[in-house]
């Protein structure tokens, strides 16, 4: 008999707790809605439906690199951002102001506590990555999710700008990117030349195609990517080191974490040095992961530096 009594008293505690909870939320909700003024909001349609977001968001948290890049480019420095690599922090190419943005975990595992502590008024995320967190994030602030980081990056830039209430800003940024491409193409007469971005992956060699971020930027600057059947539906393709000669192009760019360390060139490439006369190491922190208008400009700056040097 004794255990049963304990059990029932425990239930009463739970019930009391539940009532208190209800009372608390009851008290909480009116105060919550009072702070949001209906006049100052816009409706944004996104991967999870439609959300009313502040017309002029002040405290934005972003969970995706392309959103961070776009927000900084638009002059809306977020109060918090998820990063790809916590040890490396916010990418250096975004500038000094971005370096002070608080990190809220990694892009794949954002920290909801830290996001709530920042008291944001708008949260941007990605359905394909943060789907499980939507309800939690929506409890903190209006939350807008783009579909997938794998969609064309310029579309994601436009989506982010729309969520931030600055659609014109996105067009300006993307036009500036296109202008810079044209400038480089003209100055260095890149038309007709081929360029291939190569990413070493422990013996294997990954080639990036024209639909990848870096590949599309090279094509934007006038280069063509050497033809492959795979480009019809792949953004990159893995190559056996036995087939390294298929990576040949007029300009070959090899990504690395340290551009000054020639030992990061894979042996398959260095053993065939004759076949790769114009080969350069480039920083993967923006060539691969710097998706966005600022990253695009950084890639183009780097490309111009390389073209001017050779």
């Amino acid at each position: 008999m004794r255990p049963r009594r304990t059990r029932s008293s425990r239930w009463s505690v739970v019930a009391a707790g539940a009532v208190t909870c209800l009372a608390l939320t009851g008290c909480g909700n009116p105060a919550d809605s009072a702070s949001t003024d209906a006049d100052d909001t816009r409706d944004v349609t996104h991967a999870r439906g439609e959300s009313a977001v502040p017309a002029d968001p002040q405290r934005v948290v972003v969970l995706e690199p392309v959103q961070l890049d776009t927000a900084v480019a638009l002059g809306v420095t977020p109060v918090g951002t998820a990063v790809l690599n916590e040890a490396a922090g916010v990418p250096a190419y975004l500038g000094d102001e971005a370096a002070d943005i608080e990190m809220v975990g990694t892009v794949t595992e954002p920290d909801v506590d830290r996001i709530a502590a920042l008291r944001p008024d708008l949260i941007l995320g990605t359905e394909s990555r943060h789907s499980a967190l939507y309800d939690q994030l929506a409890d903190v602030a209006p939350t807008v999710f783009m579909d997938s980081q794998a969609d064309p990056w310029q579309d994601n830039v436009r989506f982010t700008a729309e969520a931030l209430g600055d659609t014109d800003g996105a067009d300006e940024l993307l036009d500036a990117y296109q202008d810079r491409c044209d400038e480089i193409a003209e100055e260095h007469d890149t038309a007709g030349g081929s360029a291939q971005l190569v990413r070493p992956r422990d013996g294997l060699i990954t080639l990036y195609g024209p639909t990848s971020f870096a590949g599309s930027t090279l094509e934007c600057a006038g280069f063509t990517t050497p033809e492959r059947a795979e480009w019809a539906d792949e953004i990159s393709v893995d190559l056996s080191p036995e087939r390294v000669l298929e990576a040949q192009a007029d300009l070959v760019l090899v990504t690395t974490t340290d551009v000054d360390d020639p030992s990061t060139i894979p042996t398959a490439l260095s053993a065939n040095a004759d076949a790769f006369p114009d080969l350069h190491l480039v920083d993967q922190s923006f060539w691969i992961t710097g998706v966005g208008p600022l990253g695009g400009q950084a890639v183009l700056d780097d490309l111009e530096r390389i073209l001017s040097g050779s």
């Binding site: 009391a16 707790g17 208190t20 909870c21 009372a23 608390l24 939320t25 008290c27 909480g28 909700n29 105060a31 919550d32 909801v112 506590d113 709530a116 008291r119 939690q136 409890d139 903190v140």
Partner: peptide, 22 residues
């Protein structure tokens, strides 16, 4: 306060969400 309410401090909704719902 978030768990049992009074006599403990009444907390703001977000703190309640963090403790009880997260």
């Amino acid at each position: 306060g978030a768990l049992v309410g009074p006599p403990f401090a009444v907390v703001e909704p977000i703190a309640y969400t963090v403790v009880v719902e997260w």
